[in-house]
């Protein structure tokens, strides 16, 4: 997706670091191009949104067109963790550990209302974490209950756009 197609949401590009020298910019562009087009997600599906994530990976929506090539079952091999579904108190430490086990640079997509804010399980329960950003930092939020696979694709494209703004010198700094 080209930059001009994101006209509804154009603030992100203003964060691009100014005053970088020519050599570094070229290296950045090459590395970011490679990284953004080979984002491997971790299979982390807790509930309903996981089914839509599977549908996004299957024949009709075909994730792989955008470089979200293979679902990895091991956090060591994954670049992005798509938190698809509710995260409860018992699962939160596991999620944190999975996130810690992933290698840098790592990204998080919160998919669905439960991962964004607790969703329909916001009130009158006792065991639900109100949004996955209480546990790990989130790059992209995708609302919906559950979001359509198109929404997930759009969210992943936003993530790719974010990756393209990174610089090798400041890789660990949050954008």
């Amino acid at each position: 997706m080209k930059e001009k197609d994101f006209r509804d949401n154009e603030t992100l590009e203003t964060f691009k670091l100014p005053n970088r020298n020519f050599l570094l910019t070229t290296i950045d562009d090459i590395i970011d191009w490679g990284r953004s087009n080979s984002v491997w997600p971790l299979t982390f599906a807790t509930s309903c949104c996981g089914i839509e994530m599977m549908a996004a990976g299957a024949s009709r929506y075909d994730f792989a067109r955008f470089g979200i090539e293979v679902y990895r079952a091991s956090p060591r091999q994954a670049d992005v963790i798509v938190v698809a579904g509710t995260v409860v108190n018992k699962m939160a430490p596991v999620l944190k550990r999975l996130y810690d086990q992933m290698s840098e640079p790592k990204y998080v997509i919160a998919m669905g209302a439960c991962a964004v804010s607790g969703g329909p399980f916001f009130y009158n329960t006792y065991h639900v974490v109100r949004g996955v950003d209480h546990v790990i930092p989130v790059d992209v939020y995708i609302p919906g209950c559950p979001p359509r696979p198109e929404a997930l694709l759009y969210g992943v494209m936003q993530l790719q756009r974010k990756i393209k703004l990174q610089s090798v010198t400041e890789m660990n700094k949050p954008l």
Partner: peptide
Amino acid sequence: GYIHRGIEKMCEKD
């Protein structure tokens, strides 16, 4: 219990 959301308890208020 890794996805126990307490739906039965929620039902008592809905």
